[in-house]
Nucleic acid binder design. Structure first.
Lengths: 194, 194
DNA sequence: GTCTATACCGAGATAGAC
DNA sequence: GTCTATCTCGGTATAGAC
């Protein structure tokens, strides 16, 4: 598994272009010229555009799952609230800065019609990874029969914050993230008092 | 302004197709055959595909703004909490059932590259409509210097709930909406107690 | 305004030499 | 594995008759 094989470089270039311009919006010519080869040479490595796309998406899916697990482990010694906050922040940065995040979300929301089933299969496990990892944090801070409610609210927070990455400047976005987090965590704490 | 003019029917068909398959994924042949005319006839009404697209988007933008205002007015006699909850629900249904919602969000998140600037200009006022309308509700329930924090959290809730429309079944989605709402409104109430 | 016919282009994909 | 040359298809768009 060489890291600099042409195969790998094609995937890297394709990742960026698919993320920015979508599946239909990206042409094989674009990809080939980004890699520095001619279009037909791509077919020595992938048997079709869709085949290449699935290769890219698979890589992205694996990377995101690893990212989530790694990020939570980084703060496994801290209190649950800090862990949740840390994940919220890291997740936002990942989605903002990394082409991985961009393409991940684009394909979750608006997959190319012909590949919809494949993509949903591939990403199905991501929800489960999130669930297990976040559950392990939540059961330390709320009663056993309520972690799922907070889980849903937290995932909604992640999704909302993600979406806003596209609309606002980094500063404005940061402000909104903090405000949304504050209301969320107050809601969770109120639970503890009841 | 006839409602059944060919112009209008073209826009209706184009709206549905653009929403489902995106700008690049939709061809003028698709649109023409949906309308029941031949492809070149489209050019009697719109001077290009991009021109048609902008026409559709404009209609969508206006409709969404009107929807938000109308929905809040429907419950203007009720207490603020019910108003917020009502808007959350209606907004979700609008985004789920109406092609308007689908295309609105698709184009906010992933506009076709060449039209990005036009689209962002067109949608800029939506945020302001939301801000004014929701502010008028919030100032009745939280201190004057805190409505903006709750506004940010509420908009994040709307965005998160919207995004999840794509992932989950209606039942699962409804459950998550209720849970997210509960944590949100508890966070807001805790503010009142402090 | 709608049609047929067509121009033009760029897309994805293949053949076959090197 | 990479190239040039080429194929086929479907896209956007235009010309011009009715």
């Amino acid at each position: 598994m060489q890291k600099d094989s042409t195969q790998e470089r094609i995937k890297q270039v394709a990742l960026i272009l698919f993320a920015r311009k979508g599946f239909e919006g990206t042409s094989l010519s674009d990809i080939a010229s980004g890699v520095g080869i001619k279009k037909p040479s791509l077919y020595a490595h992938y048997k079709s555009k869709e085949d290449l796309f699935l290769g890219v998406i698979h890589k992205v899916s694996v990377d995101y799952n690893e990212f989530v697990i790694r990020t939570v482990e980084e703060r496994s010694d801290q209190n649950p609230e800090d862990q949740l906050y840390h994940l919220l922040h890291k997740n936002t940065n990942y989605l903002r800065n990394d082409e991985m995040g961009l393409i991940f979300k684009r394909m979750m929301l608006f997959p190319p019609e012909s590949l919809r089933a494949d993509i949903y299969d591939m990403f199905e496990k991501t929800e489960n990874v999130m669930r297990e990892v976040i559950k392990s944090i939540l059961i330390k801070m709320v009663p056993d029969d309520e972690w799922e409610q907070v889980f849903d609210a937290y995932l909604c927070l992640l999704d909302g914050v993600f979406e806003q990455v596209f609309y606002y400047s980094p500063e404005e976005h940061q402000k909104r993230l903090e405000n949304s987090w504050t209301v969320f965590i107050q809601g969770v704490h109120r639970k503890e008092e009841m």
